[in-house]
Design a protein around this nucleic acid. Structure first.
Length: 477
RNA sequence: GGCGCCGUACCCAAGUGGCUAAGGGAGAGGUCUGCAAAACCUUUAUGCAGCGGUUCGAAUCCGCUCGGCGCCUCCA
């Protein structure tokens, strides 16, 4: 089985080959080098943004599941028009402003159970690397200066437009470009280094005082961290043009080697059928949804559940459906935990089901990260195990084997054994004494009392479930 | 105007040439139960926007039509 992922650059579904040289065994490969465009920290990220970040996390987790090592960088854009404007608006320094939103962003990542990446460079700490690219491009005559700003001339970079498949002549010309604050020779050229304006942060450089253009940031951070062609570059589809196209142009022109082997672009999250974006104001933040009583776990499940190359329409009903689906998983875990004693041998039926799960899951996700198919495989497994439990075919050893499989699958999903919020904890022994009391009341046919205890527990968020083996409880989702 | 994507059951969503169209939610029926809830089981599309065409065979390929969305400008 081979992991293949659609590559925006080639338009084909290509095998992932770290370092670009095919090896006999996964363990022979160098770590997969990945760069993901991160957030601009000027406000709360919305869950459309988080679709991309959850996908990045799923990608790196799956690569590890398949035996690869990963070396993953995601940048923090902490200097641009929006952050500068935001800081000015609040009368705080740029650093104060961006570090606040960076912190909030990292909190959101953590609550979505997104693994920390190996590198998280900040644009403001990578000025030296930007200068390296700019001076190389300057030496090679790719640049021109105008009103104190430095521009890249795309006319001098022949392959321009390969990623986005936009014919240069067809890039819409006219009105919209007139609003650009900086003057350019050609409408398609982009700024590498921006002349300072009043009250703006600025760095002293050989190319004059100023601040970085957006596109140079990513190219510089990639070079600084990985120093050569990287395996995978990810980002939202809206970054294909011009951001990623420009990254390719400046990096390949500067270093004369391929920039990225494999481009992966994540489709947009829609809300009410149109793109969720800050400028449209039609967005939900993670915190909005948590306030409505949804768990970050359900959000993770929902965001990860649709194929990354398809637009996904976000609805609150969808979040509720995700809550329900997760209940189904939790219930299996409870049922497995209830299997006590019995044989240590898992039995052939369970062993076979676990093996099928692993094989089918891998086959599904190997196919361009088809998580939806992977989830289908997973729920079929759940169903099979539930039926075996009903038939008494799951031994203690079988239950352990299934639990191990869930742990392994969850190294990819990250929503099965989800870190629980340190919420208000209810005293477990008190709950158990209440359940004991209720069961005594039931024996004495004092159903009024039994129901009263049930209602009281429910009020504290504890749900009683009567089963053949007696009552058990769980926290209300 | 240019480039591209999508339209599968009540909702979400896989499947992109060949057995009976995954899976989740909701609904219905059942098991269990003091009742209820929960849980588990069963069940739910002769059909894949519409119309033509190619093919022994199409949701899947081609053409047209209708509908929705994205990019071309800051954007995940």
């Amino acid at each position: 089985m081979t992991l293949r992922i659609y590559n925006t650059l080639t338009g084909t579904t290509d095998e992932i080959i770290p370092g670009g040289v095919k090896k006999d065994s996964v363990t022979d490969y160098p770590p997969v080098t990945i760069y993901s465009c991160g957030p601009t920290v000027y406000g709360y990220a919305h869950i459309g943004n988080f679709r991309t970040f959850v996908f990045n996390d799923f990608l790196r987790r799956y690569l590890k599941f398949r035996g690869f090592r990963v070396d993953h960088a995601m940048n923090i854009t902490d200097v641009d028009d929006k952050t500068i404007a935001g800081a000015l608006g609040e009368g705080v320094t740029l650093g104060e402003y961006t570090s606040r939103y960076t912190k909030l962003f990292l909190e959101d990542l953590a609550s979505l159970n997104i693994e920390p990446v190996e590198h998280m460079p900040k644009a403001t700490e990578s000025i030296d690397a930007m200068m390296d690219i700019i001076s190389r491009l300057s030496d090679k005559n790719y640049l021109y200066e105008k009103d104190g700003s430095t521009y890249f001339s795309i006319a001098r970079f022949e392959p321009y437009g390969r990623l986005s498949r936009l014919d240069r002549r067809e890039i819409k010309s006219g009105l919209r470009y007139d609003t650009d604050e900086y003057k350019k020779d050609d409408v398609r050229d982009f700024v590498l280094w921006k002349a300072p304006r009043e009250n703006e942060v600025s760095w002293e450089t050989p190319f004059g005082p100023g601040r970085p253009g957006w596109h140079i940031e990513c190219s510089a951070m990639i070079r600084k961290i990985f120093n050569t062609t990287i395996d995978i570059h990810t980002g939202g589809v809206d970054l294909i043009f011009p951001h990623h196209e420009n990254e390719i142009a400046q990096s390949e022109a500067a270093y004369d080697e391929p920039f990225v082997r494999h481009w992966i672009h994540i489709e947009h999250l829609l809300v009410n059928g149109s793109k969720m974006s800050k400028s449209k104001g039609n967005f939900f933040t993670l915190r909005d949804l948590l306030e409505r009583g949804h768990s970050p776990r359900s959000i993770r499940y929902l965001l990860i559940s649709a194929h990354y190359r398809k637009q996904f329409n976000f609805t609150l009903e969808g979040v509720t459906q995700a809550d329900q689906a997760l209940d189904r998983i939790d219930n299996l875990i409870v049922r497995l935990s209830d299997i006590r004693g019995g044989e240590e041998e898992p039995g052939t039926e369970v062993t076979g089901a676990v093996r099928a799960l692993m094989d089918d899951f891998t086959a599904a996700v190997d196919d361009d990260l088809n998580i939806s198919r992977g989830l289908g495989v997973f729920f079929e497994f759940l169903h099979a195990i539930n039926t075996m439990i009903n038939d008494g075919a799951v031994t203690r050893g079988g239950a352990n084997l299934v639990m191990d499989a869930l742990v392994r699958i969850d190294s990819v999903f990250g929503f099965i054994f989800f870190p629980r919020d340190a919420g208000e904890d209810v005293d477990v022994s008190w709950i158990e004494s209440q359940i004991e009391e209720r069961s005594n009341a039931k024996k004495e046919k004092d159903f009024a009392r039994a129901d009263a205890i049930r209602d009281a527990l429910l009020e504290k968020g504890i749900v009683i479930e009567d089963t053949r083996e007696g009552a058990r409880w769980k926290r209300k989702a």
